[in-house]
């Protein structure tokens, strides 16, 4: 349509490929090296092998860490999404004094440098005597991921015809009932999407987990421990596995959010 010449088009396309290449090359490299028989990540590659995967599958520490990670990320996703939903609904539905203060507080965690957050959490948990437990990681991750959950659900509520909830009251639903029958079903795609995303963030998160985990290591913490000791291609194998889990969750979240978003039936 526009009179953009072919050269500009190709330059722009090349630029996009370059950007994605820059982002994904390290990951692709890591996946490739995870199947490489040589101990050191160098070219030319050696032969194809699955020995690093076999090694991690036989390592009880990795299994333990995977169990912790899965427990932490599932619990985090449920808790963060629940609190995020409540925060989003509060913002959507009510007008009150100091609402901006409330929102600023709710959205604050991502703006704090992770290392500061991690240290503060460690100090605080130690002070009240609950550091080094699985649920101290869950608590820390929940705090970190609530803002994501809140943002996703708030966006979905924005798409809702504001008469919808009033229509439910009008047809005999109490306020609680209207939340159950109208708000939650309407926000369901965003709720599921938020659960996937917060689970992915928690599954990947290292800094906070490293500080507060104590003996209950999560997978990212184990990875760091392996690489600080020596160079071990096992890391590439674990990395590929973590990447697969996170990407699946993120893509799932995106698909859910996009497809349901298109199907709205709000009339002007």
């Amino acid at each position: 349509m526009s009179g953009r010449d072919a050269l500009t088009t190709w330059v722009l396309r090349f630029y996009v490929v370059l950007v994605f290449g820059f982002i994904f090359m390290p990951i692709v490299a890591s996946v490739i090296f995870s199947f490489n028989s040589q101990r050191f990540p160098t070219v030319p590659l050696g032969s194809f092998t699955t020995e690093w995967y076999t090694a991690i599958l036989n390592d009880p520490d990795i299994w333990e860490a995977a169990r912790t990670s899965i427990l932490v990320s599932l619990s985090t996703s449920v808790l963060a999404t629940f609190i995020g939903f409540c925060t989003a609904y509060t913002d959507y539905r009510f007008k009150f004094r100091y609402k901006y203060g409330f929102l600023a507080l709710a959205l604050l965690p991502p703006t704090i440098p992770l290392i500061i957050m991690a240290l503060a959490m460690l100090a605080w948990f130690a002070k009240i005597g609950i550091s080094g437990q699985v649920w101290s990681i869950i608590a820390a991750h929940t705090v970190l991921t609530i803002p994501f959950a809140m943002a996703i659900i708030r966006l979905r509520l924005n798409e809702m015809d504001e008469s919808l909830e009033a229509a439910a009251w009008n047809l005999g639903a109490s306020e609680w009932r209207a939340v159950k029958e109208v708000i939650i079903p309407f926000a369901k795609p965003a709720i599921i999407s938020s659960m996937c995303l917060t689970a992915a963030v928690s599954f990947d998160e290292f800094a906070v987990a490293w500080f507060v985990s104590g003996l209950n290591k999560t997978i990212p913490v184990v990875i760091l421990e392996i690489v600080t000791g020596n160079i071990d291609p096992q890391v590439n194998a674990i990395g590929s596995f973590v990447f697969l889990v996170s990407m699946t969750l993120v893509v799932l979240a995106q698909i859910l959010f996009m497809t349901k978003g298109k199907r709205r039936t709000v009339t002007p």
């Binding site: 015809d161 008469s163 919808l164 009033a166 229509a167 439910a168 009008n170 047809l171 109208v182 079903p185 309407f186 369901k188 199907r263 709205r264 039936t265 709000v266 009339t267 002007p268």
Partner: peptide, 15 residues
């Protein structure tokens, strides 16, 4: 018992 027909109709899209 005063049901309303809304300007936007406000039909529930998930039902």
């Amino acid at each position: 018992d005063t049901p309303m027909v809304w300007q936007s109709l406000a039909l529930f899209p998930f039902l």
